[in-house]
Simulated assay, not measured.
Amino acid sequence: MGMAVKVMENGRMVLPIAIRRQLGLEKGGTLIVEGGDTEVTLRTLDQTLDKVRTAFAAYADLPGTSVDDFLANRREDSGE
């Protein structure tokens, strides 16, 4: 759903209530702003964290990537 908003001289704009409700934003809520070549994307913090989790999920089961593996490698490097 596209809506027109005005950008004030100082760069501020007001998100329409329909968008705030759709995203579950309340006063003091946090949005992540991503600028592309020709567009701007607004995401809630939860949406951004979900995106990051999804991106890293493919690497979660790779050999040698667990915390235990990391600590074992550090112990080996330090001679413990």
Score class of each variant (00 low, 15 high):
M1N: 03
G2W: 01
G2Y: 07
A4M: 06
V5Q: 06
K6P: 01
M8C: 09
E9T: 08
E9Y: 02
G11E: 01
G11Q: 02
G11D: 01
R12D: 13
R12W: 11
V14R: 12
V14E: 08
P16T: 01
P16L: 09
A18D: 08
A18I: 06
R20W: 00
R21N: 13
Q22E: 15
Q22Y: 11
Q22L: 13
L23A: 06
L23S: 01
G24I: 00
L25S: 03
T30W: 09
T30Y: 12
T30R: 15
I32T: 05
E34Q: 13
G35K: 14
G35S: 11
G36Y: 09
D37Y: 12
D37A: 10
T38K: 13
V40E: 02
T41L: 12
T41A: 08
T41V: 14
L42I: 07
R43M: 15
T44P: 03
T44I: 04
T48M: 12
L49Y: 05
L49K: 12
D50S: 10
D50G: 05
D50K: 13
K51H: 09
K51T: 07
R53W: 03
T54K: 14
A55M: 10
F56R: 07
A57E: 11
A58E: 12
A58P: 03
A60K: 15
A60D: 14
A60Y: 10
A60Q: 15
A60S: 14
D61G: 11
L62P: 00
L62E: 14
P63T: 03
G64A: 08
S66W: 07
D69Y: 00
D69F: 00
D69Q: 01
F70P: 04
L71P: 00
A72S: 12
N73K: 15
N73Y: 07
R74A: 14
R75Y: 05
E76I: 04
E76Q: 14
G79E: 05
G79T: 02
G79K: 06
G79V: 01
E80S: 11
